[in-house]
């Protein structure tokens, strides 16, 4: 007997799916902004305060060499044991921030390293203040250079948010398992969800590319 696709029961639950979609965007959006900021901050601190180089390095290595899912379990299940209680959504955003922060630190660090010393000297000799040199000669061009790498990391983060369903967050994947249980149309449900993720990932790529153009409008060339 051939399998007949029945999408109607799944699409009838579009309000559940849209709620999930909205929560995914909200969580991923918050995580991406906070994680990006944390990464930039740590990458800069690492360069400015030599004493922090080692602890930040350990943080980056630990996060980058353990699965996101296990980090999520440690934050959501482990931290309450240490007296730090939070909702599943808060745990999700915290884990995402810590995870993305580590990757972003590494990416932004590479950008900062690529700024040549002579650029800074040139900036200072033009009587720019140290802050101005940092802002316009070091950080701006560094971020512009690594923006494509950061963007791919952001998209990966958006997709990773699907594991939040493991701790019963009702984001898109969580909503999917609800719809699946209501309709018994597993395959159709996951096809619809896959299309939604694909659309979100593509939209985020376009938005980030446009954002990059606006933010780094100055003609900066790599190397």
């Amino acid at each position: 007997m051939a399998f007949e696709f029945q999408f109607q029961p799944v699409l009838a639950q579009s309000d559940v799916l849209l709620d999930g979609l909205y929560l995914t965007l909200e969580l991923a959006g918050t995580g991406i902004v906070l994680g990006g900021l944390l990464g930039t901050l740590l990458a800069v601190l690492r360069g400015v305060v030599p004493a922090l180089r080692w602890p930040i390095g350990v943080y980056v290595e630990v996060v980058r060499n353990t699965p996101f899912l296990v980090q999520l379990f440690i934050v959501y299940l482990g931290l309450p044991e240490a007296g730090l209680r939070m909702s599943a959504e808060q745990a999700a955003v915290l884990t995402m921030t810590l995870n993305l922060g580590a990757y972003a630190t590494e990416i932004v660090r590479a950008g900062l390293d690529s700024v040549h010393k002579s650029q800074i000297e040139a900036g200072l000799s033009l009587a720019l203040t140290r802050w101005q040199v940092f802002r316009h000669v070091v950080l701006g061009p560094a971020l512009a250079r690594v923006w494509p790498s950061l963007s791919s990391q952001f998209v990966l983060m958006l997709l990773s948010s699907s594991v939040f369903s493991f701790i019963s967050v009702q984001e898109l994947s969580g909503a999917a398992s609800n719809v699946e249980q209501d309709t018994f149309r597993s395959f159709e449900t996951y096809i619809v969800i896959t299309v939604l993720y694909l659309a979100m990932a593509m939209a985020l790529r376009v938005i980030l590319a446009l954002l990059g153009r606006v933010m780094f409008a100055a003609p900066v060339r790599a190397r």
Partner: peptide
């Protein structure tokens, strides 16, 4: 490539499992 990189691993898992 666009499909695999634009979809969570979790969805690839469910799609192949049910598919």
């Amino acid at each position: 490539i666009g499909l695999v990189q634009g979809v969570p691993v979790l969805m690839l898992l469910f799609l192949s499992y049910y598919g």
